[in-house]
């Protein structure tokens, strides 16, 4: 479902959202506030999401545990 291409696709989607936000930001004296906030929010959330995905894309460590319950195993 998700692989390395997701980061690129996500970027495109976010760029589209940001562009839409820029265009459809409410007019008036607060337009700058809307635009800046929308763009920055999209950028921040995208970076965070993409980095999290990238960090798990080619993991060097795998989770391990020893506290399984018997019921879980069977």
């Amino acid at each position: 479902m998700a692989n390395g291409w997701s980061v690129i696709i996500g970027l495109v989607v976010c760029a589209l959202i940001a562009g839409a936000g820029y265009i459809f930001a409410p007019k008036g004296e607060n337009q700058t506030v809307w635009r800046s906030s929308i763009l920055l929010t999209v950028a921040c959330t995208y970076i965070m999401w993409a980095l999290t995905l990238l960090a798990q894309l080619n993991p060097l460590v795998a989770p391990s545990a020893s506290n399984f319950r018997k019921e879980y195993i069977e």
């Binding site: 479902m1 998700a2 692989n3 390395g4 997701s6 999401w49 999290t52 995905l53 798990q56 894309l57 993991p59 795998a62 989770p63 391990s64 545990a65 020893s66 506290n67 399984f68 018997k70 195993i73």
Partner: peptide
């Protein structure tokens, strides 16, 4: 497997957790 034995997970090939950790 015995109680308390350490098990390491293995990855499902070609799939990455899509949102978050």
């Amino acid at each position: 497997w015995k109680q308390g034995m350490k098990v390491t997970a293995h990855r499902i090939e070609g799939y990455t957790y899509p949102f978050g950790v």
